[in-house]
Design a protein around this nucleic acid. Structure first.
Length: 258
DNA sequence: ATTATCGGACTATCAAAATG
DNA sequence: ATTTTGATAGTCCGATAATA
């Protein structure tokens, strides 16, 4: 899995978020899909995921980095008349549509501290992997926050602190007091825990890791290395070194279909 | 098996309308 | 002045077709 969060959270939609056995929510928990503010022309044309960095990951991967430019956004129409709104009741709620809570309160697993305030997504599930909230891209440096009209122009380059993730295999069935448990524990990357380490940037990788042309580092043995590790773009455009054990990113949110 | 294409679901944005 | 609402513009998921 490539750690490639775009925006505040992982780009992996919550409905695909790796829930360990026993933590699978009963309600379909689906986070919002994060979108970049402005996709490059290439990604836009291809209807593919872009990122905030220029050149974007996809353009780098396809060797068209020099053609990676922001697409033009057209101005929103003004003066469009709108029909009357649904009246709100006295409490500021909409008079109609008393909706069922999209995500009913969920309780953290044992050992997790209770939340003081409810949030749409419990932090223990929403925990950012890869970049911390606000970061745009793990392997490249995002553009500085766009200044609003009237503000000063872009400041110095904006480099949020990225993280690397160290996979930690979970205990296999039978090792945790569930001997004989009929539940099948899939041997799949999604069931690995991750220890998050600050990085900056690593100088060496394990012998089992491989550089990919797109600037990520692939760990062939998905049994122990389910995550993709990223590295800065300057180190990225080497030749693909091949794949020893199939595509780790198979089924990966960020490298499917690319 | 891999890559390209693209329909349409989904999200972000922001001005109009509503409210305090 | 601030908040809410909803329309619009845009992103990109995921299915399928094309190609190597």
């Amino acid at each position: 899995m490539t750690v490639h969060p775009v925006g505040g959270y992982s780009s992996m939609p919550m409905h695909m978020y790796p829930f360990p056995p026993g933590l699978v929510p009963t309600q379909p928990l689906r986070s919002k899909r994060r979108q970049v503010k402005n996709a490059c022309t290439n990604c836009q044309k291809a209807c593919k995921k872009c990122d905030d960095a220029r050149p974007c990951l996809r353009c780098v991967k396809y060797g068209i980095a020099e053609e990676c430019i922001d697409s033009q956004r057209k101005e929103r129409k003004k003066g469009v008349k709108r029909g009357p709104y649904k009246k709100r009741d006295g409490k500021g709620n909409s008079a109609e549509a008393v909706e069922v809570q999209e995500h009913p309160p969920m309780h953290p697993p044992q050992g997790m501290p209770p939340q003081a305030t409810p949030s749409p997504m419990p932090p223990y599930m929403a925990a950012s992997m890869g970049y911390p909230p606000g970061a745009a891209f793990y392997g490249q440096f995002p553009a500085p926050p766009t200044p609003k009209a009237g503000e000063a122009g872009p400041g110095p380059a904006y480099y949020p602190t990225p993280f690397y993730i160290t996979p930690v295999p979970m205990a296999a069935p039978g090792q945790n007091g569930h001997e004989g448990d009929s539940q099948v524990y899939p041997q799949h990357p999604q069931f690995f825990q991750a220890a998050i380490l600050p990085y900056g940037p690593p100088q060496g990788y394990g012998p089992y890791m491989m550089h990919r042309p797109d600037g990520t580092i692939q760990i062939p043995n998905s049994h122990y290395a389910p995550f993709m590790y990223s590295k800065p773009p300057s180190a990225g455009t080497s030749n693909d070194v091949g794949n020893m054990n199939g595509r780790v990113e198979q089924g990966d949110e960020n490298h499917r279909n690319e």
